[in-house]
Design a binder for these strands. Sequence first.
DNA 1: GTGTGTGCAAAAGGTTTGCAAGAAA
DNA 2: TTTCTTGCAAACCTTTTGCACACAC
Lengths: 142, 142
Amino acid sequence: MSNLNLYTEKLRESGLRPTRQRLKICDILFSTEKTFHFTINDLTKIIEEKLNEKISLATVYNTVHAFKRKGYLKEISINSDKSYFDTNTTEHQHFFDEDTSELIDCGENEIDSIKVKNNITGKKIKSVEVLIRVASDNQTQN
Amino acid sequence: MSNLNLYTEKLRESGLRPTRQRLKICDILFSTEKTFHFTINDLTKIIEEKLNEKISLATVYNTVHAFKRKGYLKEISINSDKSYFDTNTTEHQHFFDEDTSELIDCGENEIDSIKVKNNITGKKIKSVEVLIRVASDNQTQN
DNA sequence: GTGTGTGCAAAAGGTTTGCAAGAAA
DNA sequence: TTTCTTGCAAACCTTTTGCACACAC
């Protein structure tokens, strides 16, 4: 609970009122140096465990989407029943470990940046997302 | 309804019984030269319109997943409430038009093939998926 | 005070499941 | 006749919505 003033300011700058709930979520998401990946469900659990209190599901959804809209979070495309979010909003790609359903950041050492040589006429490129699916070798097929 | 024997054989080879429902779905998915993208909902509608009959939702899901497991269909990763499938199972990437929620195939003219320089230790790369999100320029943000 | 944000419960939407009846081998 | 498949409805899960109350400014 260290950067409360910082978060308060950041939220206000974005036109978001610094409510208790939003500040707590900020604290969970942005107070560690390490970036991380999470689902809404993960986040809800972390809130309950770390803060020993409940923030309503609707509010968690609202907040996460607000933060995404403001560019503080990125959503990651995976074929999954649920949405994954990333506190690292810089351009980078991901490994997805199918054994554990875990996302792993992928840096420049792992993959060259992708150049789109021809785009669809009349459209603008919003993002280029790469997902490298991995699994252990001894995979059951079928 | 031309390739029924072909489909029957193909299904049998895969250990799938060539039922009436599966053959009809084969006919819809594989009898055109063009590959295409669809959601379960799309497919269900096509079945109803083209065949003037209903195949139960559960069966459509079963069949699509069976075909995916056998490698006759690919699932495409998009952040979406629904799953998209592709009858083109060769390695290729996609544009996703956010204005229309439409998938467009992406060939070698549009993007270089991706080389993964370093993989996660102990894991095997299952696939490398690229999704290029596009939208028209005059996009409302926030 | 006014406008936002929160919380709850209900609803929605896509997908899965259990199970009895039906078809293929 | 044994095994796989279908179809239906119910269940499930994630996400969204409506609305009254509470909070921020």
